[in-house]
Computed example of a mutant assay.
Amino acid sequence: MSSSFDPSIESEIRNHCWNYFSLHAQQRMSAFQFFITLETALIGAGFFVLQSKPQFADSHLTIMIGPLMAMLAFIFWKIDQRTKDLIKNAEKSLLEIESFFLKNSTVVQHLPFSIDQQNPIATFPIFTNRLTYTKSFGTVFVVCGFLGCAFTFALITSLASK
């Protein structure tokens, strides 16, 4: 960006970058909420089947609960990676815009994206870095994948013992 741009174009660029960031950040949260809802339903179905009467527990379709949980964890993890990359692209653009304003303004001293780059937030004593959405979501995806494998094993064992 150079100072020879028309201010309305600069405003359009800022709005475009912010809308891009906002859209993908909201999309990431919505996708994660949907994943949690699906996994909760599958976990509930798994527990129901494990504790149910034989008409449900004997169904071979129930063995698919665990693999479905693991598959959904993998798919949503890959979707989250893509959305995270889109958000990072928007963050880079917004940081460039903020840097331009900081260099060309005597009034503005701090802006959110530039402050985040300069001043890392203090970490929790046992963690070496920040706890981010990526780490948090990744942990949930891994746990749900392992739960899916555990449910598969438990359901197969349950069916084999009957």
Rank of each mutant, 00 (worst) to 15 (best):
S2I: 12
S3V: 12
S4C: 06
F5T: 03
F5M: 12
D6H: 15
D6K: 01
S11T: 10
E12N: 11
I13K: 03
I13C: 02
I13W: 01
R14D: 03
R14P: 03
N15P: 06
N19R: 13
Y20P: 00
Y20E: 04
F21L: 05
F21M: 03
S22P: 01
H24Y: 15
Q27I: 13
M29W: 01
M29A: 15
A31Q: 07
F35R: 02
L38F: 14
L38A: 07
E39Y: 02
T40M: 07
A41Y: 08
I43S: 05
I43Q: 03
A45E: 06
A45N: 06
A45W: 13
G46C: 00
F47D: 00
V49P: 04
L50Q: 02
S52D: 07
Q55R: 10
S59W: 13
I63C: 01
M64N: 05
M64A: 11
M64L: 15
M69R: 00
A70P: 07
M71F: 15
M71N: 09
M71W: 14
L72G: 07
F74C: 03
F74E: 04
I75K: 06
K78P: 00
D80G: 04
D80P: 08
Q81Y: 13
Q81T: 13
T83I: 15
K84Y: 15
K84M: 09
K88E: 07
K88G: 06
K88Q: 12
N89V: 11
A90I: 10
E91A: 01
E91I: 14
S93M: 12
L94W: 01
L94A: 00
I97V: 09
E98N: 02
E98I: 00
F100H: 14
F101L: 08
L102N: 05
K103F: 05
K103M: 06
Q109A: 10
L111S: 00
P112Y: 02
F113N: 00
F113A: 04
F113H: 08
S114H: 09
I115N: 11
D116T: 10
Q118Y: 07
Q118E: 14
N119G: 02
P120A: 01
P120Y: 11
T123K: 14
T123Y: 10
P125E: 08
N129H: 13
L131G: 01
T132D: 02
T134G: 07
K135R: 14
K135Q: 14
S136E: 04
F137H: 12
T139C: 08
V142Q: 09
V143D: 02
V143N: 03
L155K: 07
I156F: 12
T157W: 15
S158A: 08
S158N: 15
L159Q: 15
A160D: 10
